[in-house]
């Protein structure tokens, strides 16, 4: 316990967690947008878009996140010269967010699809019989209900995203938790368990409220039919 407190005072652990939270929030935002676009494509009447979206989903679903992150660093940055910013650190930061967003958007898409399954067919039929077109049916009738039905899987995806944000280490984001943990262990090899417990408990503390909120939200928002 004493070891933990000294460690906490020596290193900016909270700052590291804050970096992970920021990574998570940005990626959550972008992957949500991309995920909605993907799911719209998958349910659209246009075969080419459907095929593209399902190909995209299959591709990223079966790809390790680590290789995406390494690709972002060695492929996209070093060889393709993708640059978000002139400074290295913020450049890596945004590259990591890009990788995380691409990877997570696929799971957002799948969660939303499972949510769409909770919407009875009658809803879409009614919308069509009222003369609504595809975008109106999807945007006004189906997706709002789908969102409410997919809170639980979306919450799980968010939790996974938070945990996956540690993989940003593979994209040279040096300030996040797993890198800091590595450094701390290097300099405090004797109290390795204390170091690990600090971070492990940190994640448990972060994840529990998300889980509680998800459960509460999904029970509150679920459309009672």
């Amino acid at each position: 316990m004493q070891a933990m407190l000294t460690l906490l005072s020596q290193y900016d652990v909270l700052g590291a967690f804050w970096v992970n939270i920021q990574l998570t929030l940005w990626s959550a935002l972008f992957s949500l947008i991309l995920g909605v676009v993907l799911v719209m494509m998958r349910i659209s009447p246009i075969p080419s878009l459907r095929a593209f979206a399902s190909g995209f989903v299959e591709f990223f679903k079966n790809m390790p996140l680590t290789i995406i992150m390494v690709f972002m660093l060695l492929g996209a940055f070093v060889q393709l010269r993708f640059q978000f910013s002139s400074t290295f650190s913020s450049n890596f930061y945004w590259l990591a967010i890009t990788g995380l967003s691409l990877y997570t958007s696929v799971f957002v898409c799948e969660s939303l699809r499972s949510g769409i399954n909770t919407v009875p067919l009658g809803q879409a039929e009614a919308a069509r019989s009222l003369g609504l077109g595809f975008f109106q049916t999807a945007g006004l009738i189906v997706l709002p209900q789908a969102f409410r039905g997919s809170v639980a899987p979306l919450g799980n995806t968010l939790i996974a995203l938070l945990k996956n944000s540690t993989v940003a280490a593979a994209c040279s984001v040096a300030t996040e938790t797993s890198t800091l943990m590595k450094t701390m262990i290097e300099y405090n090899a004797s109290s390795i368990v204390a170091v690990f417990m600090i971070f492990a408990i940190g994640y448990v503390i972060l994840i529990i409220p998300i889980g509680l909120l998800t459960t509460w939200l999904s029970n509150t928002l679920a459309v009672r039919r």
């Binding site: 945990k163 996956n164 540690t166 993989v167 280490a169 938790t177 797993s178 943990m181 590595k182 262990i185 290097e186 090899a189 390795i192 368990v193 170091v195 690990f196 971070f199 492990a200 994640y203 448990v204 994840i207 529990i208």
Partner: peptide, 15 residues
């Protein structure tokens, strides 16, 4: 389930 796998890996690796 709550702790990221990467943290486990680094921990056991050093341990």
């Amino acid at each position: 389930r709550a702790v990221p796998v990467l943290l486990f890996m680094i921990f056991f690796w050093r341990l």
